[in-house]
């Protein structure tokens, strides 16, 4: 399959705001970094579940993925994202786009996340 397959752990996969992100977008990223993964003690950003953030006229669009498609906390996590971002001054709406491109892999985890998980006795 050409189009359905993508390289997991795509080289150059970048977590966090782009260089040209404005202040509000950076604040969205920082806030998302406080939303915990309900299963393990790291944030959604550290878990590399947040792929992109875009803010247009107060409307935040968060493009995110899930390590497991059948995640029982799927709706809960999306609710947490919406609730967290609504506390930011200047954000009037939150849209969540789900993507599987690229497919999440543990290789995408930030170095900090690896360390934190190790300290918590979790191997991932």
């Amino acid at each position: 399959m050409s189009v359905n397959s993508v390289d997991a752990g795509t080289p150059g996969f970048h977590i966090g705001p782009d260089e040209d992100a404005d202040e509000l977008e950076r604040e969205v990223w920082e806030t998302l970094d406080t939303v915990p993964d309900p299963h393990i003690p790291v944030s959604l950003v550290e878990m590399a579940m947040i792929y992109d953030v875009d803010v247009d006229a107060g409307e935040a669009t968060v493009t995110m993925t899930f390590p497991c498609m059948g995640c029982p906390a799927y709706d809960m996590i999306k609710d947490d994202v919406r609730a967290a971002l609504r506390t930011i001054r200047g954000i009037t709406g939150v849209e969540i786009e789900i993507t599987w491109d690229p497919v999440w892999s543990k290789d995408m985890l930030t170095e900090t996340a690896h360390e934190e998980l190790k300290d918590a006795g979790i191997s991932l």
């Binding site: 399959m1 050409s2 189009v3 359905n4 397959s5 993507t99 599987w100």
Partner: peptide
Amino acid sequence: IDHDDFTGMVQKMGED
């Protein structure tokens, strides 16, 4: 299926 909307998603489903 050979369509952009399924990119990555079918691969993920294949893992299951």
